[in-house]
Design a protein around this nucleic acid. Structure first.
Lengths: 189, 189
DNA sequence: GAATTCATGTAACTTGTTACATGATTTA
DNA sequence: TAAATCATGTAACAAGTTACATGAATTC
């Protein structure tokens, strides 16, 4: 889909700088989409060229000048056109490097896979723990942008992350069991 | 990680053509990694340049010539080096276009989101159904390549797809419920 | 005194997608 | 007779990552 639609969507809330947008990505979208600052700046430029955004410089003292982007009527139209299109191809939604390692797991030294699976579980647990922080941020943004009607939807995306992480943990534990059953030696890690 | 590691891994089983590799991707890796033929051919070329693969032309009658790639000792080394590295950054494993639509769901016309969620559920159900075919293919490849010791690992990747698809359906049903509760009007689709 | 925050970007690179091109053989 | 299978790729494009550059103000 490209980052550009997400940027248009966020700018439909209110004008923002690239830096602002990066904050929002890091704090409340990261569990289903991420973006480098460099990519955000580039795509903002592209969107402006297309006429979907306008920008103005806001001088500041003691800080670098801000470049504040606003969405245009055309930009809103383009965003809504995209929004109603159900993802047609779904290309490859999943592209999971860890699963590639599992797939070739028989070539790993004994115990290594268990080690990686345990690490994976730990990471997923941390991910789940981090979601309560996202919950708070959502609350904060809803208030700050006076967008309480959005909270429901934002929470639904978070809920997805939770269910997926939980499922991942169950899966990894199942893997450990199966490997044990199959007699693959355990690591001491 | 790039496709290249997966290609090296598959070629560690036996020499194959780009076309062969594409078949395997489509039939038994697609649920966690996909690749266009054009990308496969390009990356095979890159791997050969690096000295990780060698190729030889195998002439055929009535069919185009085959270009069969084999992994070198260096290629195997590179692959194993990669294999033992736990995905360090996890960059953004998830990049889910559908969740972006949910996030901006309040801007969708009434009923549209329900429509998309129901479509999503249907697709995930079809995905689950397709997994029994993958199960059979795994069985087939394990026999054909005399790699029965791999079956366990291949099935584990499939199991992940199953658990994730199942979780997705539960999530989408929860979404429908929540939207109903919140009084968002339903579609007739 | 060192690291982080604020704020902008450019350039080079890697990875993935789409469109195009060829052409015989086999299956529906 | 139309489509799919076999088998190779190239070219152009889109999307994402990494490294580099600047520089004041604030916090640890």
């Amino acid at each position: 889909m490209s980052l550009q639609h997400a940027l248009l969507g966020l700018l439909s809330y209110r004008p923002m700088t690239g830096y602002d947008l990066k904050q929002i990505f890091e704090k409340s979208i990261n569990h289903f989409w991420s973006a480098q600052l460099s990519q955000i700046y580039r795509d903002l430029g592209n969107l402006e060229t297309k006429g979907y955004l306008t920008s103005r410089i806001e001088p500041q003292e003691g800080r670098p000048d801000k470049k504040v982007y606003s969405i245009t009527a055309e930009g809103e139209k383009a965003f809504h056109n995209w929004l109603v299109k159900f993802p047609q191809a779904l290309t490859c939604a999943v592209r999971d490097e860890f699963l590639v390692r599992i797939f070739f797991g028989s070539q790993l030294p004994p115990g290594e896979l268990e080690f990686q699976l345990k690490k994976f579980i730990k990471e997923k647990q941390e991910e789940i723990e981090s979601y309560s922080a996202v919950e708070k941020i959502i609350e904060h943004y809803a208030r700050e942008m006076s967008r309480s009607e959005e909270k429901l939807f934002w929470r639904l995306t978070l809920r997805r992350g939770y269910i997926m992480a939980e499922g991942s943990i169950r899966w990894a534990e199942e893997c450990l069991e199966q490997l044990k059953k199959a007699g693959v030696p355990e690591s001491n890690a």
